[in-house]
Design a protein around this nucleic acid. Structure first.
Length: 424
RNA sequence: GGAGAGAUGGCAGAGCGGUCGAAUGCGGCGGUCUUGAAAACCGUUGUGCCUUAACAGGCACCGGGGGUUCGAAUCCCUCUCUCUCCGCCA
């Protein structure tokens, strides 16, 4: 959520940013917001003045009763009652205005950083980095879902039987590979200064709202109606919400947390090759990294996080590229996002395995996550996060790119974890 | 799941329906003393919003929401959470 003050003070800048993000109706909404805000201020002033009078009267009434001047007290009581009904009217009006205002504010996405490229869709994204040779596989190379079946390591059909599509069952070395990757990613993160967190995977509405999934993505999360809880779509939600309603000390920044959780996404309306095999799932495993930083440091940290994630993929010997998302392709809450993609040699396409974003104050404003500087002043912190990494597509690329006559080769860094060099 | 108790400032802990944003203690910050430190003493110590160029002033907040009252931290209702006992349980 964008701070109201920012909108009031920087209307033009906001409109520009929203345009870059291809947000429609921006002008109309902003105008409404400005008008409502003006109304709101007026009403607050009125309400406060009435309350002030009532408070003063009440004190006087108390004194009058004490000194036994009953008739005068009664008179003032009457006056106070009238003021009260007046106040109730003003307050009701104010409440209505504030509800309307809030409903509009929540619609506005975050503003893109100035370096975000113009563009409408994924085609306009900029490749800013590429590393590794694209493997060339023989004609008879198999896609990962075929390999999964051949070596009996992932069973999609049984997942359908147990739950539904998008809930694969990992078996044998396939299951172990999941566990190994989680451990590897967590170990790397903790070695790089991130504190490991194991959060709940069900969260309440306030948490969903805090990181911006609600109300924007209501319907994409699984919801447990009985207890009014959401299954998390990413560890970002619980891990970032740790800092909801918290005032940090400046010297506590940056906060660096990481965590593994299963992630749950309903993702209604997907189709075709995008959802084959491991390409898109309703449940998957992911290690997430989250940082809460000083506002002046967040872009530096974003680059650091992006390099960190690229480093993971290099260790796994996967060809990768980094894409800077254009305005139209960015998420609701992000100010700048890099997607990390690996090349899946049998499918002959790039698969997104990580998304690293700076949210600036968009999340922290909702979260009320602030820090106190040396002078005792309170500021909003910046929040960032990234996948490091999501497993399924990494596994897809590993299986496809490393397939040989002999079996599937496990990357060297993982062998100490797996205890085997081949899936065969 | 059943029965009871409770929720107050960074923490601990007071608070007859009126002068309570809230005693007191601890902690934090500033100062006096000291070569330095400790001790002692003095002062200070929440958040949000509105008005203001500023000084300053006003309003709200004692778990959340609603109510009674001229006036609520204090009374009533309701929700949430915590604790104790019992039951169940990895």
């Amino acid at each position: 959520m964008l701070p109201l003050q920012l909108i009031v003070e920087n209307k033009e800048k906001i409109l520009q940013g929203l345009k870059k993000k291809h947000f429609v109706n921006a002008e109309e909404i902003i105008e409404k917001i400005l008008k409502l805000d003006e109304e709101r201020r007026g009403l607050i002033k009125q309400s406060n003045e009435i309350k002030n009078k009532i408070n003063t009267l009440s004190k006087e009434i108390g004194e009058l009763f004490k000194s036994g001047k009953k008739p005068e007290a009664e008179h003032k009581k009457q006056e106070s009652v009238e003021l009260k009904s007046n106040e109730t009217q003003v307050d009701n009006h104010l409440k209505k205005v504030e509800t309307e205002l809030n409903a509009l504010l929540v619609l506005l996405p975050n503003l893109p950083h100035e370096s975000v490229p113009e563009g409408k869709s994924a085609e306009d994204n900029q490749v800013v980095y590429q590393h590794g040779e694209l493997p060339v596989l023989p004609e008879n190379a198999l896609c990962h879902w075929e390999l999964a079946q051949k070596y009996d390591i992932i069973d999609f059909e049984t997942g359908v039987k147990l739950t539904g599509s998008g809930f694969p069952v990992y078996k044998g070395k396939g299951a172990k590979l999941q566990r190994v990757l989680i451990n590897f990613f967590l170990d790397q993160a903790t070695q790089n200064g991130y504190t490991e967190i194991e959060p709940p995977i069900l969260v309440n509405e306030a948490s969903g709202f805090g990181t911006g999934q609600l109300p924007d993505k209501d319907g994409q999360m699984y919801f447990v109606n009985e207890d009014k809880l959401y299954l998390i779509p990413t560890a970002e939600v619980p891990i970032t919400n740790i800092y909801r309603d918290v005032i940090l000390k400046e010297e506590e920044l940056p906060i660096k947390n990481c965590g593994y959780t299963p992630c749950f996404r309903r993702e209604a309306g997907s189709y075709g090759k995008d959802v084959r095999g491991l390409n898109r799932l309703h449940q998957f495993d992911k290690v997430e990294i989250v940082q809460i930083t000083h506002p002046e440091k967040s872009y530096e940290v974003l680059e650091e996080m992006r390099e960190y994630v690229a480093g993971l993929l290099k260790m796994l010997e996967l060809p990768l590229r980094t894409v800077k998302l254009c305005g139209g392709d960015m998420s609701f809450a992000s100010a700048l996002t890099y997607d990390m993609e690996v090349y899946s040699a049998a499918q002959k396409r790039w698969l997104e395995v990580s998304s690293v974003s700076n949210f600036e104050t968009f999340q922290t404003h909702r979260l009320k996550c602030r820090f106190k500087d040396k002078n005792g002043k309170i500021h909003l912190a910046h929040s960032l996060n990234g996948s490091a990494l999501a497993l399924p597509r990494v596994v897809a690329a590993l299986l496809e790119n490393n397939q040989t006559e002999r079996g599937i080769r496990i990357p060297k860094v993982l062998v100490p974890y797996t205890g085997f060099e081949w899936i065969d």
